[in-house]
Design a binder for these strands. Structure first.
Length: 504
RNA sequence: GCGCUCGUAGCUCAACCGGAUAGAGCAACGGCCUUCUAAGCCGUAGGUUGCAGGUUCGAGUCCUGCCGGGCGCGCCA
């Protein structure tokens, strides 16, 4: 930085140096040396594996993946992790739902619990169970529903009812209950994994909540809190005195029936994270979880770790629009738009780009029509088109039997001395700092906006200057700058999870 | 009710941990195709940064109050 600054003072041609740096370094231009920075874990999405991901998860996925990729490009050693909430009541409801649909597949006639999972994907899982295991899990309907309390439509309590169904399933299935449970979990988790992978989001670690109980981490964490005097008993429950660390109220970690709470798992999970030696732990949560930040940080402090090392980024939900019309979504009624449907309709590149083009904590409107449109109105197409345009010119060049001479182009860069050209070159030289700033501030939109500007500058310049001209030196200079722009756009698009097409 | 968060052009958003006349893109209006992709380019117009105070040499940015939107306030996960 210092050196280049000196060069700028001493030599007006120094601004051109960046062009050859870009061409020399290619994909690595703007990147720091790999693993030269802190070791950081980024945990994101972590949606309950009770159904497919929807568009709300999509924003967290795109944001988390991009922040992780940006930090990695900035030299951080990154571990991407998905926390699998595979313990708890919701998962049992899933297992019971699968089982009942399985019985229906075998011909049983029954009334599905009002609190069960209604989605069609449950039937698909049940169907596979029948195909693979025939009637192995079958029990007479009379035995299944004998002496159960009333469901809500019959004037009962839907929660009590579904709990009774779960208990009955466990009684009748015995060891096979775990099998049905796993069939549901594995199927949905597999679907989520595939969905994310197709979205360009891949994890190093899938961390199971149940493993925390099995490994004894939950007990260990509670024992540590106990030994430090942060727990107390009241009404038969064990409470964590989180108010001592700024929380509004104390929190139960173990119920009177001996069951630990989800929060206890969370305490153990964060202890586990810190014990793995990360310099920094980044949690990306939906905005509806903001109330948990205080208590989790309280637990981290109580365990003796520095809560400053935990960074929680909240992501607001996106509201889908189809043109003017708002797309209604309701998870309960099952009328939600899945991430897969969104990808199918809009395409991965536009999805990834649109999601991160706004600050994460900002509410955003996601316009499906705009994301799909193939015009300059659509920023992702606009940027990709700048890239394709350069490729197109090079193809045309070749078709005319000409060659791009890079060395000649570099040597002739000083011919590009208009303000527009210098602006483009200056903008190119800013790329590394934009990348670093976007990474360290966890603000991918900085890079997205930069790419829009660069593409705009390039389109403007391109429109006013013909590339394929007879003057060889000037032609090579223009092509060289074009290729440098193409490289930086490709680098930026890669970090945003979008492709850089050679033709459109 | 309490807490968190957001409020910037008609619309969607920027503004580099307070710094100079608050910037883009859509939409609107006016131009540019015998020429490498018009999937593009140029120009014009558009703002009392929700409101009212305060701190500061300086506030979209920090503080207080109010108004409005979103979210949260389980021995659910």
């Amino acid at each position: 930085m210092q050196a280049r600054f000196m060069q700028l003072l001493l030599n007006p041609n120094a601004i051109y140096v960046v062009v050859s740096e870009i061409l020399d370094q290619g994909r690595n231009f703007g990147r720091a040396a790999p693993n030269s920075g802190p070791r950081v874990q980024v945990e994101f999405v972590s949606a309950n594996p009770t159904g497919p991901l929807h568009v709300g998860h999509g924003r967290g996925a795109a944001y988390g993946a991009t922040v992780a990729d940006l930090l990695e490009a900035a030299g951080y050693e990154i571990e991407r992790e998905y926390y699998v909430n595979d313990a708890g009541r919701q998962m049992n409801i899933l297992a019971a739902s699968v089982w009942l649909r399985y019985l229906e597949e075998l011909g049983a006639e029954l009334t599905f619990p009002s609190n069960g999972y209604q989605g069609h994907y449950i039937r698909d899982i049940a169907h596979r169970l029948v195909v693979d295991h025939q009637n192995r899990f079958e029990h007479p309907v009379t035995a299944v529903f004998a002496d159960l309390p009333a469901d809500e439509p019959q004037g009962g309590d839907k929660d009590q009812y579904i709990d009774a169904v779960i208990e009955r399933a466990q009684q009748l299935l015995g060891d096979d209950y775990e099998f049905v449970f796993s069939a549901g979990l594995d199927s949905i988790l597999g679907d989520i994994r595939e969905d994310l992978s197709e979205f360009g989001v891949d994890y190093q670690v899938w961390f199971s909540e149940r493993s925390l109980t099995r490994s004894g981490d939950v007990d260990t964490a509670l024992n540590i809190l106990e030994s430090k005097g942060h727990l107390y008993e009241q009404d038969g429950n064990i409470w964590f005195r989180s108010t001592a660390f700024g929380d509004d109220k104390d929190r139960v970690v173990k119920r009177a029936n001996g069951q630990t709470t989800y929060f206890a798992s969370d305490i153990a999970y964060h202890m586990n994270k810190f014990d793995r030696g990360f310099d920094q732990v980044i949690n990306i949560w939906g905005a509806d979880h903001h109330g948990y930040i205080t208590r989790v940080k309280a637990a981290i402090s109580a365990l003796g770790y520095d809560p400053e090392r935990l960074i929680v980024k909240l992501v607001q939900f996106a509201i889908l629009y189809r043109g003017e019309e708002r797309v209604q979504m309701s998870t309960r009624s099952g009328s939600f738009v899945t991430l897969r449907e969104l990808r199918d309709e809009v395409g991965k590149d536009a999805c990834r780009f649109f999601y991160v083009t706004r600050k994460s904590e900002q509410h955003m409107d996601f316009d499906l029509e705009l994301a799909k449109s193939e015009s300059k109105d659509n920023p992702i197409y606009y940027i990709q088109y700048a890239h394709a345009r350069v490729c197109s010119v090079l193809r045309k060049l070749e078709a005319e039997g000409l060659r791009w001479d890079q060395a000649s182009g570099i040597a002739s860069l000083a011919l590009l001395d208009s303000e527009a050209e210098k602006d483009i070159i200056t903008k190119l030289s800013r790329y590394p700092e934009v990348l670093t700033s976007a990474a360290l501030n966890h603000e991918p939109h900085q890079l997205a906006n930069y790419l829009k500007e660069l593409a705009s500058d390039y389109h403007t310049w391109y429109n006013g200057h013909k590339m394929l001209i007879d003057e060889v030196d000037l032609r090579n200079a223009r092509l060289t700058l074009s290729v440098a722009v193409r490289q930086v756009i490709a680098n930026g698009l890669e970090l945003l999870g979008a492709s850089a097409p050679e033709q459109m």
